[in-house]
């Protein structure tokens, strides 16, 4: 089938502003959008820039806007979006070249969540693992799936409006630790998230949950963090 692929192009070394270029190529319904981009880069215009690595939805490199919604290019097939395809960089982060945006602000917000297990209690005396029941482990399973692709954060209207907002991905990271029964840093993280750039900026637009390529119920996770903030309880 013939695909019509409209791609946002911007080369800061040449262009004062971005523009759209349309490519007509042959493709199949089962092709990933990433395959389509690779084909264009390989055979039509080598200068097209985008990030990618694993090509099957686990490394989080290739979040982009495909027909107006955030997706991973490697986890979206032509049959999902049709033969007329528009590809643009995600919103809310500075465009560096074509589909590549500056991810540093995104990772900076991640780092603000103290994204590591906090537990200063002594390790088990027998030299073995800390114990955790399957139920306690299940409590935060969803939020461990996050691959930091930024599809959620860059789909959030509150983040577009205010780039200081930590954003849904950072809150999912906080959730992963707050609800881990082995962690002792919940109060500290809840305090950080209670600041003006924290959960108060979430207006449950639900875009994040729809954008998540890992099917994490992000709005629900944010709700649980808000609830913990109000009640001081983690169950």
């Amino acid at each position: 089938m013939e695909l019509t692929v409209k791609i946002f192009r911007y080369n800061p070394e040449k262009d004062t502003r971005g523009n759209y270029v349309t490519y007509k190529i042959e493709g199949n319904a089962n092709d990933r959008i990433l395959d389509v981009l690779e084909h264009i880069k390989g055979k039509v215009d080598g200068s097209l820039a985008f990030r990618r690595s694993c090509a099957h939805g686990v490394c989080g490199s290739d979040a982009m806007r495909i027909n107006g919604r955030n997706h991973l290019a490697c986890k979206t097939l032509v049959r999902d979006v049709g033969a007329n395809i528009t590809v643009e960089p995600v919103l809310g982060l500075k465009i560096q070249k074509d589909l590549i945006v500056d991810m540093d602000p995104f990772f900076d917000n991640y780092k603000k969540m103290l994204p590591y297990l906090i537990n200063d209690s002594p390790l088990p005396a027998d030299g073995r693992e800390r114990l955790q029941s399957p139920e306690d482990r299940a409590r935060f399973d969803e939020s461990t799936k996050c691959i930091l692709c930024a599809a959620c954060t860059t789909s959030c209207p509150s983040y577009w409006a205010n780039g200081e907002y930590y954003g849904p991905a950072a809150i999912v990271t906080a959730h992963r630790f707050i609800f881990d029964s082995r962690d002792e840093g919940a109060a500290e993280r809840l305090h950080i998230l209670s600041e003006t750039d924290g959960t108060v900026r979430c207006h449950t637009a639900y875009n994040c949950t729809e954008a998540c390529p890992r099917d994490i119920k992000i709005t629900k996770a944010i709700g649980e963090v808000k609830m913990a903030m109000v009640t001081g309880k983690l169950d």
């Binding site: 297990l117 390790l123 399973d141 461990t144 630790f177 881990d180």
Partner: peptide
């Protein structure tokens, strides 16, 4: 011990 969430 570093926090890796193994299944239990």
């Amino acid at each position: 011990n570093m926090g890796l969430p193994f299944d239990r």
